[in-house]
């Protein structure tokens, strides 16, 4: 994984996800945390956009944020739920981390 992009803002009130999906590289990863996991809301355009990303883009979401928002049982197949140790491991595996602060 070249760059791991980290998002934590709700995609319904904020442009970060849209912008990120425009510029994300074909071998990058995207990890959703906090309100950014709301992008996985079933029926939303954001979820559809994520499902349509090229196969090389790896998608992750932080488990506790999914559980808190009742999204853990309806994940798209290609989205991996990760805990904090896995979050750290992903950050270390990536060449670099881009936090969309």
């Amino acid at each position: 994984m070249k760059t791991l992009h980290l998002l934590s803002h709700s995609p319904f009130t904020d442009q970060r996800l849209t912008s990120c999906l425009h510029v994300i590289g074909a071998n990058d990863g995207l990890l959703l945390t906090g309100d950014a996991v709301l992008a996985l809301q079933p029926g939303s355009l954001q979820r559809k956009a994520l499902e349509l990303m090229p196969a090389g883009v790896q998608l992750f979401a932080l488990e506790e944020d999914l559980i808190a928002r009742h999204l853990q049982d309806c994940l798209p197949e290609r989205v991996n739920s990760v805990d904090y140790p896995r979050f750290v491991a992903l950050s270390l595996q990536a060449d670099k981390v881009n936090s969309w602060l």
């Binding site: 070249k2 760059t3 425009h22 510029v23 994300i24 590289g25 060449d95 670099k96 602060l101």
Partner: peptide, 18 residues
């Protein structure tokens, strides 16, 4: 363009977005 921005991310060692 977007592809060139992807390449820009790839070609640097560190990224800070604010």
């Amino acid at each position: 363009d977007d592809a060139a921005i992807s390449a820009l991310y790839a070609s640097h060692d560190l990224v800070i977005t604010l």
